[in-house]
Nucleic acid binder design. Structure first.
Lengths: 210, 210
DNA sequence: GTAAGTGCTGACAAAGTTGTCAATAGCGGC
DNA sequence: GCCGCTATTGACAACTTTGTCAGCACTTAC
């Protein structure tokens, strides 16, 4: 039962490329961002999750703050790309609006990007974060309506439509099940039915006012 | 230049009733809750803000966790009361919906209650927090519509209307200015115009479908 | 093979956090 | 005026977290 004088052999050391290591660390940090917000990101937890020691994280990012900045930027960029892709993917025609809402909703749910956005919005020093390019969407919608029926609706009306849709989808991605249950909506497909209902509502409004 | 042997007289000690102390501490903790979320509440900061030492806070609440629980409960209850009051205050008639939205919006902005709600929703272990009694509102709305035009709309339609309104107002209270600016809405009264626009939209929908 | 570059690590330091405890002091009741 | 209750406090302990640093070890170039 004598303890050997020599220290036990250290676990094998895995060596990644700097690129791979950064990605793995960002993945772990993003999981924490979604779960506990930017202030909940702990170097030690991130390191343990990746399977490295915490100085390694500092080695790759310099400081905790830089890591948070990097993961926030990556998450928002990724969300932005996904949303743009969803908008582009939306088919012309009948169910365009519904498909569009579904696509954006999926982007917001993917890996909790909606939660990440909300966390960052709450924790941001003061609107220091980028917008979600709502302006482009509003202008695109307005152009479409103008083409169909000139002067049928103001630009602001289109801006409000976009804001309302974004608000509904974002809120759904953060506390959707909670709200649906809380309002008494039953059934598993409540969220999908809500989106379809919202699509009809927006379509009716746009159709009514131009 | 000799330093006197006796320690300088300690600052006068103010003694509140336990009631008063708890209130003052909860006020300070609530400010921190709104600003930095439940995880951002620091005993030392709260204590400094109130003008006491941090063991005093522990004396009154037992633990940090109990303090967070107390402040969260108080904030949500207060918000709930304010919202109910706003709903009751809404006049019958023409601008009922607009006044209602304005009232709820004000309740959400008062001392950052909307932010507090969102922080708590994000940080909550798993929907462990109470709903905002959306169900009651949905049922009240449905009853009103039934009385006006029986079987004109499903209950779920009313539930969705309430969810949509709540989503829009809550999102506005958290990142309203950000979204309005981001969408290109100009002018200082953008938020108010958005609410008025939303009121018209909802009214049109309800009028259309019963 | 061996030398250079660097991903990675353990050990340590510094600062901040919650919580404990014995002692102090303000306030009301007698 | 005295006493008991308790709000309040400074000092201290235990823990966590970020950050530093010197050195180790894996990969690549030569």
């Amino acid at each position: 039962m004598t303890r050997p004088r020599t220290t036990p052999p250290p676990p094998p050391r895995r060596r990644r490329t700097a690129q791979e290591a950064r990605e793995a660390i960002l993945d772990a940090a993003e999981r924490q961002l979604v779960a506990s917000g930017p202030d909940g990101i702990r170097l030690q937890d991130v390191a343990r999750d990746v399977g490295v020691s915490h100085p390694t994280v500092l080695h790759h990012f310099g400081s905790r703050e830089a890591l948070v900045e990097a993961v926030a930027t990556r998450a928002l960029d990724s969300l932005h790309d996904d949303v743009l892709a969803a908008l582009r993917r939306a088919p012309e025609g009948e169910d365009q609006v519904a498909a569009l809402l579904d696509g954006v909703s999926q982007a917001l749910h993917a890996r909790g990007q909606g939660r990440a956005l909300m966390w960052l919005a709450l924790a941001a020093p003061a609107g220091h974060r980028d917008d979600l390019r709502l302006r482009e969407q509003a202008e695109a919608l307005h152009a479409m309506r103008e083409a169909r029926s000139p002067s049928g609706a103001t630009l602001e009306d289109s801006q409000f439509v976009v804001i309302l849709a974004a608000s509904a989808l974002l809120t759904q991605s953060v506390l959707g099940p909670h709200m649906l249950r809380g309002a008494g909506v039953s059934g598993a497909q409540g969220a999908a039915r809500f989106r379809a209902w919202l699509a009809r509502l927006l379509l009716a409004h746009v159709g009514r006012e131009g």
